[in-house]
Computed example of a mutant assay.
Amino acid sequence: MSFAFENEDEVNLLRGQAKNEKTDLEFDDFSLKEAVNSKNEDYIKQKIRERIDRASVTAVYLTTDCAKSKWVDWEITESLKRRKGVIGVYKGDTPPDQLPTAFDRYGIKTVKWSHQEMMHAIAEARKER
């Protein structure tokens, strides 16, 4: 999961839904659970890369905050460099007006926060990588 730190509470809800045994939604979340305690960007990138390498698809939680985050845009680009699938997930009926620039640059698919849509998009992104 890639997301803006300001949206951590909503992302935790999504994580909880994926762990609920009564839903079909399943994914392994390799995102950092706590911010890396460092100002050294190379070290932070190394820690994030370790997580990206463990995943097959990076799901980006799309919000206005996310579009402003340099880290989210970097994570998307890094995921694609490492041949990982990438999807965007938004809450509500429409995606935010602003998306990270990598979405337009790479034509990344966005889907509604719905178990079926997310599962389908993750499976497709996994195949396309």
Score class of each variant (00 low, 15 high):
Ser2Lys: 02
Ser2Phe: 04
Phe3Asp: 08
Phe3Asn: 07
Phe5Ile: 06
Phe5Val: 06
Asn7Ile: 04
Glu8Asn: 10
Asp9Phe: 12
Val11Ile: 13
Asn12Ser: 07
Leu13Thr: 10
Leu13Trp: 04
Leu13Ser: 07
Leu14Gln: 04
Gly16Pro: 04
Gln17Val: 10
Lys19His: 07
Lys19Gln: 14
Lys19Tyr: 03
Thr23Arg: 11
Asp24Ala: 08
Leu25Glu: 07
Leu25Trp: 12
Leu25Ala: 08
Glu26Pro: 00
Glu26Arg: 14
Asp28Gln: 12
Asp28Arg: 09
Asp29Leu: 00
Ser31Asn: 09
Ser31Cys: 12
Leu32Gln: 00
Lys33Asn: 13
Lys33Gln: 13
Glu34Met: 13
Glu34Ile: 14
Glu34Ser: 15
Val36Ala: 14
Asn37His: 05
Asn37Gln: 10
Asn37Ala: 12
Asn37Val: 04
Asn37Lys: 12
Asn40Pro: 07
Glu41Val: 14
Asp42His: 01
Asp42Pro: 00
Asp42Arg: 05
Tyr43Lys: 15
Ile44Ala: 06
Lys45Ala: 13
Lys45His: 13
Gln46Met: 12
Arg49Pro: 02
Glu50Ile: 06
Glu50Cys: 01
Arg51Thr: 12
Ile52His: 14
Asp53Pro: 01
Arg54Leu: 14
Ala55Pro: 05
Ser56His: 12
Ser56Glu: 15
Val57Leu: 09
Val57Thr: 11
Val57Glu: 08
Ala59Arg: 01
Val60Leu: 02
Tyr61Ser: 03
Tyr61Pro: 02
Leu62Phe: 02
Leu62Glu: 02
Thr64Phe: 01
Thr64Arg: 07
Asp65Glu: 12
Asp65Phe: 05
Cys66Trp: 01
Ala67Gly: 02
Ala67Lys: 00
Lys70Ile: 06
Trp71Ala: 03
Trp71Gly: 03
Trp74Thr: 07
Glu75Arg: 08
Thr77Trp: 00
Glu78Tyr: 00
Leu80Thr: 02
Leu80Cys: 00
Leu80Ala: 03
Lys81Cys: 03
Arg82Lys: 14
Lys84Cys: 00
Val86Trp: 05
Val86Tyr: 07
Ile87Trp: 04
Gly88Thr: 09
Gly88Phe: 09
Val89Gly: 01
Val89Met: 10
Val89Tyr: 06
Lys91Ile: 06
Pro95Glu: 15
Pro95Thr: 10
Pro96Met: 08
Pro96Trp: 09
Asp97Ile: 09
Leu99Thr: 06
Pro100Ala: 09
Thr101Cys: 00
Phe103Ala: 05
Asp104Tyr: 10
Arg105Pro: 00
Arg105Leu: 10
Tyr106Arg: 04
Tyr106Ala: 06
Gly107Phe: 03
Gly107Pro: 05
Ile108Gln: 04
Ile108Pro: 06
Lys109Tyr: 07
Thr110Met: 08
Lys112Ser: 15
Lys112Ile: 13
Trp113Gln: 11
Trp113Met: 10
Ser114Met: 04
His115Ala: 12
His115Lys: 10
His115Met: 11
Glu117His: 11
Glu117Cys: 01
Glu117Gln: 14
Met118Gly: 12
Met119Asp: 11
Met119Cys: 10
Met119Pro: 02
His120Leu: 13
His120Gly: 05
Ala121His: 08
Ala121Tyr: 09
Ile122Asp: 08
Ala123Gln: 14
Glu124Arg: 15
Ala125Ser: 14
Lys127Val: 07
Glu128Trp: 01
